[in-house]
């Protein structure tokens, strides 16, 4: 009877949760203190995520996307990492205040992560079935046999025949491995799924399949998702909300429509402009000039000012503040203090 009850738990809907936001982060700062320098990876960001929503976290390499989500799991290695925040609430629980044991209960159970490279995120010495079963053994306290049965079901759900549960990761292709990784992450029906560039290592046709699968499963299990990517196409395809990160800050945030149709921040504009133009095959690529700034520098002004073609003198001297343009849409740019300021993209 006991066993029956426990089994039922694993196939139930997401963990009960009341409250508007499954994730509520305020003023998150992460820095890495090494012997030579202090690297400011994340400099005060706010994130809120509603039930069943998908948030896209977009930005260049080194913008602090991965650091941000690792902090949600409290997986930033300390030292050298230092994490500060007013609050990081996952499912209403303050991650910063939890003990190691409580953290282990949350990880994988309430908030789970899909890593970037499926080739390296599976343990080569265990069969895929055993690896999926591990979450059931840790969180639902199932016996190995029961857990393996559950794992087979989960494999079927992500579209892999259950007979293959006894095979090792090297016997799978990249796309299949990523399905396995997704199966592991969703095994315990977490409320929040973090996908750290889940399709970067896959080719385009497989990307589509994996994204479809994730979308489908999120609907089925009512999971909220944070999708880290630098592919704007994926964002358009999967996300409800978008946050654009630059140098450890969120420079623009809004619904998909806000950010894509009604772009406000010069950096976001730059991202769109640097996409290849499919209609004019002779046109040159139009990248954002310059490089992402050295993260060891503390900025007195806007970190994007050097690369920004709208930058004025004040942009270098004064820190930009968050401007709320509508209920959902916000931008961090000084030029919007001027009533008639518009970037080129919105003029078109």
């Amino acid at each position: 009877m006991e066993i029956f009850k426990r089994k039922k738990k694993t196939v139930q809907q997401p963990k009960a949760f009341e409250g508007e936001y499954v994730l509520d982060v305020e003023d998150l700062k992460i820095r890495y203190e090494t012997d030579d320098a202090v690297v400011y990876a994340v400099n005060g960001i706010d994130l809120k995520l509603k039930r069943k929503q998908t948030l896209g976290l977009v930005g260049e390499t080194g913008a602090g996307k991965t650091s941000t989500v690792l902090a949600l799991l409290k997986l930033i290695p300390t030292p050298p990492g230092v994490v500060e925040a007013k609050k990081i609430l996952v499912n209403g629980k303050d991650v910063m205040a939890l003990s190691d044991k409580q953290l282990q209960q949350i990880r994988g159970n309430e908030i789970a992560m899909v890593f970037q490279d499926p080739m390296t995120s599976l343990d080569p010495v265990y069969t895929v079935g055993e690896q999926i079963a591990e979450s059931y053994m840790i969180h639902d306290k199932l016996s190995k046999k029961e857990a393996l049965e559950e794992a087979k079901k989960m494999l079927e759900i992500v579209g892999i025949p259950a007979e293959r549960s006894g095979e090792f990761p090297y016997q799978f292709s990249g796309g299949m491995k990523q399905r396995v990784v997704i199966a592991i992450a969703l095994a315990c029906r977490p409320n929040i799924l973090i996908a750290d560039e889940p399709t970067t290592a896959l080719d385009v046709t497989i990307q589509l399949q994996v994204l479809e699968l994730m979308k489908q499963l999120n609907e089925k299990y009512q999971t909220s998702t944070i999708m880290i990517t630098h592919d704007l196409g994926i964002v358009a395809e999967t996300c409800d909300e978008v946050a654009v990160m630059y140098a450890g800050q969120i420079v623009e945030k809004g619904t998909l429509e806000d950010v894509f149709e009604n772009t406000k921040h010069p950096y976001t504009e730059g991202l769109f402009n640097s996409l290849p133009n499919m209609n004019d095959r002779n046109s040159k690529l139009n990248p954002i000039k310059g490089l992402i700034p050295d993260p060891t520098i503390v900025f007195t002004g806007c970190p994007f000012a050097e690369r920004c073609r709208y930058a004025k003198e004040k942009c270098f001297k004064q820190k930009p503040t968050v401007k709320h343009l509508s209920e959902s849409h916000q931008v961090k740019c000084l030029r919007y203090d001027e009533a008639d300021f518009k970037i080129e993209r919105s003029l078109k």
Binding site: L73, D100, Q104, G108, N109, S121, D123, V181, I184
Partner: peptide, 26 residues
């Protein structure tokens, strides 16, 4: 430092479990 070690932590495995089940066998 392999990603699957971090992945098993993200899954909620305790440090001892990570050491004996994932690090040592590899």
């Amino acid at each position: 430092n392999n990603e699957y070690i971090e992945a098993s932590r993200a899954l909620g495995a305790s440090e001892l479990r990570v050491l004996f089940k994932h690090v040592l066998p590899n």
